[in-house]
Design a protein around this nucleic acid. Structure first.
Lengths: 191, 191
DNA sequence: CCATTAATTCGATATATATCTAATTAGGTT
DNA sequence: AACCTAATTAGATATATATCGAATTAATGG
């Protein structure tokens, strides 16, 4: 849902008289004068508010004989309620999308199209992205001998020792008796 | 949730600038000038809106060094979203409650405290309430002989024939070969 | 303790809007 | 066709508020 529509809806609901009308109509349809009577207001005022409520499509009307009955459009109300919950969740997804795009940009910049690392970024944040990219080929829970790990790193860059050291420094891996293993993600360096 | 609080929330959300701020903050905390920059507005304007947003408790702040970061209070947002859905449902329940109370009032008026019917109401709506009250002792899908049904009705009133006729007229029951049976509720007389 | 930077407050302005009374329209009913 | 009743429109008024520039405050860092 576009933002401006949501703004209009909230603006419409941000009035005590209109909210009381909504509550009344949620109990069942009423005609204008009945609403005016129950709320202690004059018909023109009710017309004014009905106009606003119709603008966002939360009420509709049917004529019965001489009088017009106003109905609450419950599906539309529910629709807006859903949009409200979406508002924050949508934004979170948007954030994730942006982050993924930025990571990809860094990777494209520091790796050749054959997939080899040009050089380690100086900026910490970018370095972490690059290191994590290379870690993707390792399996969690698997044990690697130093020679094995070196071979793996050499696929990306000749200076395997430097990169192996970075893996340890930033807590991506740990070494025990010459055997290397991935740390669980929650132990990794952040930001 | 009280109505006035919901009104305040909607009034607060009914502004394009504030909704944009909400969306921004949903992606993560920001400091005032960053918000001002992203929205193309001046810091005083941002302060103004932050004030409104804090009033309804959808943002909070934490200081980090020299600058203040503003956070979206997502649980509170969710809380209001739930309140919005409740708004119409609450009113429907309220309506049901009122109807039940009115039915009980009619029953209290037309039945003695021993549970016997004083007389049939003249008003159609009240008559239906009274008839439905007496029908509650019958089981759906069960077949009753006329004599059996008469005995049942006599618990409420001596003129069983009149009441039995009402059951038929208003489509609560049907008769086939002298055997009576309840109709499904969707066939009953309404209003 | 001073300097810096971010945030807030103040004052002004332009715009929006909730409500009423009075007048008008719209649509059925007789 | 004339009449009635409900709804709407028009016009007026009072209140609220979004925004900005200028001045002020708050709090940290040197």
């Amino acid at each position: 849902m576009q933002l401006s529509r949501l703004v209009s809806f909230f603006k419409t609901m941000g009035d005590p008289t209109r909210l009381r009308m909504i509550k009344l109509l949620a109990e069942g349809p009423l005609h204008g004068q009945a609403i005016a009577g129950k709320l202690g207001l004059t018909p023109p005022t009710i017309t004014h508010h009905l106009h606003k409520l119709r603008e966002v499509n939360v009420v509709y009307q049917r004529r019965d004989g001489n009088t017009i009955y106003f109905y609450l459009n419950k599906p539309v109300m529910d629709h807006y309620a859903a949009a409200l919950t979406d508002l924050t969740e949508q934004a979170e997804k948007e954030k994730d999308r942006k982050e993924a795009a930025e990571r990809q940009k860094v990777i494209d910049h520091f790796f050749t199209c054959e997939g080899r690392l040009k050089h380690l970024p100086a900026q910490r944040k970018k370095k972490l992205i690059v290191l994590e990219h290379m870690l993707k080929g390792l399996k969690k829970g698997e044990k690697y001998e130093e020679k094995q790990l070196n071979e793996y790193i050499k696929k990306f860059h000749d200076d395997y020792a430097a990169i192996r050291r970075e893996f340890i420094i930033h807590n991506y891996m740990y070494r025990e008796n010459g055997i290397y293993e991935l740390n669980p993600e929650e132990m990794w360096a952040k930001e």
